[in-house]
Write a protein that binds this DNA or RNA. Structure first.
Lengths: 345, 345
DNA sequence: CTGAAAGCGCTTACAG
DNA sequence: CTGAAAGCGCTTACAG
């Protein structure tokens, strides 16, 4: 605990009551110049800073919000966190941060901790927004929250997202226009991510509308933090039935897939096209640059926090999903499908 | 505030005193089975969760620590935050997060906020650990903290770092061994980062020891979040007096420099070698891969939090810097210096 | 303009 | 084994 100097000591030094000290600090009532000066002197002499704990207990406001994301190390989350934090700070709020590391069961545990800390609201990305005990708990506790990246369909929970199906369809449209017909969907545990599932759905719809077969699906165990993962990923890619394009539901995985492809002698995009989803900024710097669907990640964080702020001050807020604009970002990682060397008539 | 259900309501429903409820919850004293069961029933029926605010006020422990970093969007910080958070959680602690966005003056402001929140300690990366009003404030408040990435020299503050000078020298040694003699140090506002300054120093030392002239210095305005930055960076690179190698004190900048070099027709590494410092994992995936000095970022976060935990429980901890092992990570972004086409002889 | 007092939600000696 | 009471650091009616 800081300094252990309390309002009582300030009052003692200033020769007034603690009520007066409180009034000077918060400007919540008139005070005589003489008293105010003594109080201010005492505050700076003692380096006093009011305890938010005491204040919170009395006012029942903690000015704190919680953020829960699957991972900090994915730039998509990092940049939206920056947006959330910026807006939170602008409103005098502080941010309590947790990562689930993609363990859905950890969501509930984290929520309980944050509720105990009396957060006034949360911005979070859960595994499945339509079916989440963590969110049910928040509803029961009547603590406001805004989902970020999740795009719930069955529930009308408040969320900030892009149109994941449309985005994926758009990207697939580009691949199909480039002549790709054997496209694989390469994802990591995507069944536990409602976003990936929607992107998969968009992928399937695009293929069907083009009269093409459903995409081959490869589920990989790639978390991005184990030294053996690149080799394992490469080995798994070998199992594919020679697709000409790979669609990954997130950019980080797409980068890993490009590296793994290269390591097994598949040139990108000459031998295989690879596309991602998210629009992380590094994707623009690399060669070939990563074709992807860009999400306005920072703006999404900003928007989510603005909505949460509105909820916290009881402003009227319509439930449901706020779709922000996604954008196809072209990149050198995709190119025209290679001419068929075998198979086709 | 969650549910608004307090210990008093639980006690009322269970037909006992709040003291007993507290004892059941904390297991801090024996309770009869009958009472315990009634209390447990009440707790789950009311979905009661004790308020950390009330508890903190009484126990003077918030079980909360603060993290302050320059930015979330640099993977170096993101991955160490993940390490800190993991260890914090393991100790039942929660994490309050803030970013300075590289504004040193924001450090103090953030520290004040976190102190008001009664954090029990902090893990932080400041602009200059030897000369920091924010750290002075923490010292005065007697709140424990562990620096991360900072490598203070004049003060013996507790810190977890790599040997920045040695790391930079090692990297420069590799460049020099490849025949580079005109090497530029390309950094963004590096005078406000003690780490970058040390890396610069290592760079200079390596050059001098090899009998080479001091590196040319290019200070760039690259934050990585403005659309016009890539072009501006490229324009600045043009101003250099044709160095054969560029050393950037962080990987994120190195990636941007590689992209900018490419955009002005300089091939990496054929025309110019580029090296970074940090060891972000994406550096391994790209082509050419990024030559850099690897820092064990997650482990550094883990170590910092372990030290902080020790401080929080008043375990004896020696002050000073803990140097973790860095490692040169070879990469295709550096190659032998091109043969001199002009100038020589 | 200022103070005494109550009370926010807890924990913890102190009794019994 | 259990309860009444004090008190953590504040804010805020209520008096004056």
């Amino acid at each position: 605990m800081s300094g252990a100097v309390s309002i009582r000591m300030v009052a003692a030094r200033a020769g007034c009551s603690i009520a007066t000290v409180s009034r000077v600090i918060n400007g919540t009532a008139q005070t005589s110049d003489a008293v105010r000066e003594r109080v201010e002197e005492a505050i700076s002499a003692l380096e006093y800073r009011p305890s938010e704990i005491g204040r919170s207990l009395k006012t029942r406001k903690t000015r704190t919000i919680g953020i829960v994301v699957p991972s900090f190390t994915n730039p998509v989350f990092a940049s939206s966190i920056a947006g959330v934090e910026e807006v939170a700070r602008a409103h005098g709020r502080t941010v309590l941060l947790s990562a689930t590391e993609y363990h859905a069961e950890r969501e509930e545990e984290i929520i309980e901790t944050l509720l105990a800390k009396q957060v006034e609201g949360l911005v979070l990305t859960v595994a499945d927004a339509d079916n989440s005990r963590a969110l049910d708990r928040l509803d029961a506790a009547r603590v406001p929250y805004v989902l970020l990246y999740n795009q719930p369909a069955r529930t009308n929970r408040l969320a900030v997202s892009v149109d994941n199906i449309a985005g994926a369809k758009e990207l697939l449209g580009q691949l199909i226009a480039l002549g790709h017909s054997r496209i694989a969907f390469v994802a990591g545990r995507f069944r536990t991510s409602d976003r990936s599932l929607l992107r998969y759905q968009g992928c399937v719809e695009a293929m069907r509308e083009a009269g093409l077969p459903d995409p081959e699906v490869l589920e990989v165990d790639y978390a991005g933090d184990q030294p053996e993962e690149p080799d394992a990923l490469a080995a798994q890619l070998r199992e594919l039935r020679s697709p000409t394009a790979l669609f990954c539901p997130n950019d980080l995985l797409a980068l890993a897939v490009i590296a793994a492809s290269r390591s097994i002698g598949m040139k990108v995009p000459a031998d295989v096209s690879v596309a991602g989803f998210d629009g992380i900024s590094i994707g623009k710097m690399i060669e070939p640059s990563l074709a992807t669907i860009n999400q306005p990640t920072r703006a999404m964080g900003v928007r989510a926090m603005e909505l949460l702020q509105a909820l916290c001050q009881a402003d009227p807020v319509e439930p449901g999903v706020r779709l922000l604009q996604h954008q196809f970002r072209p990149g050198g990682s995709i190119a025209a499908a290679p001419v068929e060397g075998n198979g086709g008539t």
